[in-house]
Design a protein around this nucleic acid. Sequence first.
DNA 1: GTGGTCTAGACCACC
DNA 2: GTGGTCTAGACCACG
Lengths: 121, 121, 121, 121
Amino acid sequence: MLLNLDFSSSIPIYMQIRNYVVMAIANGEIANGEKLPPIRALADEIGVNMMTVSKAYQLLKREGYISTDRRNGATISYRTDKVAYSQESLDELKLKIAELKLAGMSEVELINLCKKFYEED
Amino acid sequence: MLLNLDFSSSIPIYMQIRNYVVMAIANGEIANGEKLPPIRALADEIGVNMMTVSKAYQLLKREGYISTDRRNGATISYRTDKVAYSQESLDELKLKIAELKLAGMSEVELINLCKKFYEED
Amino acid sequence: MLLNLDFSSSIPIYMQIRNYVVMAIANGEIANGEKLPPIRALADEIGVNMMTVSKAYQLLKREGYISTDRRNGATISYRTDKVAYSQESLDELKLKIAELKLAGMSEVELINLCKKFYEED
Amino acid sequence: MLLNLDFSSSIPIYMQIRNYVVMAIANGEIANGEKLPPIRALADEIGVNMMTVSKAYQLLKREGYISTDRRNGATISYRTDKVAYSQESLDELKLKIAELKLAGMSEVELINLCKKFYEED
DNA sequence: GTGGTCTAGACCACC
DNA sequence: GTGGTCTAGACCACG
């Protein structure tokens, strides 16, 4: 796992770990059914406390991205059939787009970027 | 200003105010050159501490959306010519797209949504 | 034995096995005096460790649902005459009812549900 | 808050705290809108770590029983209009009833008990 | 003063 | 060996 943590970021570390895993699933780096490293191993590797990684895994589990199995540790297991995004999620997208628009991004640029990200992901 | 604050949200109140202003600028509700309400007035109106509104204004200023002037208060003044979005901003967009993709949103849906948001904004 | 194990559940596997047997006794699927499958056979069938099945059987024995005999394996043998439910058991029922009440279930619904479950069981 | 913790129970402490609050809401001991003690105060009072109480509060928040407000701490705020109980919740009720039936409880006793608990709660 | 996050350990249940 | 829980501290963001 090549995840770059920013310890001075305002984004909590457990959330950065969670975000990395979500991205890694989306871009195919980690396939459905594959295993995540054990909590302790990952914690040692990236130099954070076990509890912090545990918090990230529990969040991912609650969000339906992974399942933790007493026998095998944490494995990627998101439902591919469900279509369910919250209003909150859409609001966040809208806000991001507003920011980019004000930063001077044209509609065409935005669409191209979205396509690129969607396909990379 | 019709902004709905969610005091139990995990998003800090000053950030909710900041987000509202950014959206309002993007969708044209507040035009460039217009003035934001005085800190004290807005604080009273929405029932929060003056410090909180002040923090939101300072953030908006730091981000280049508004400028503050001792005589005129806070006025919208974002540069329309500059094209500058940070890598961080793009990463956040990418993450949002990854989440929506995993939640089952198709590429077509995403593009349509982005167009809609961009034009509304 | 048609028991669906959920390996990613927070309920330990041995407890899921135990729960299944209790339900099966209650709804008459397994009659008093009948035999449970040998530990090894059941373990193979459902794909878990023998220790896990053994733990479930030991728990069932401790709770008085089955008796184990070196010659005959495990047989259902709960006392039908005793009337003995622990305070703990009642507390758990009370908690469940509290949760359902707060989730919006009416008293009538609850009673109908309880009757249905009691008679099915 | 008069909650009796059983430190030797297999039920985690944070879950015992959560259960207590759910019961207290159901039986009216804590009204909607009332405040829960601050995390640190409750932790000191019952002699457990702050993190443990925090975990209980976060769980209650996720389950929709309370909301935490940066200004006022944790307040009871469950939605009274929603009617939503999970299949899992019903399964647990069914299991409890099966156990009580096997322990010799008659249907009439069960119904009376449920009524009593529902009304007390 | 509130909740949120994090650390560096420890013990336990489960498999 | 796995995740889950807990402790006794600490610092931070928020209001």
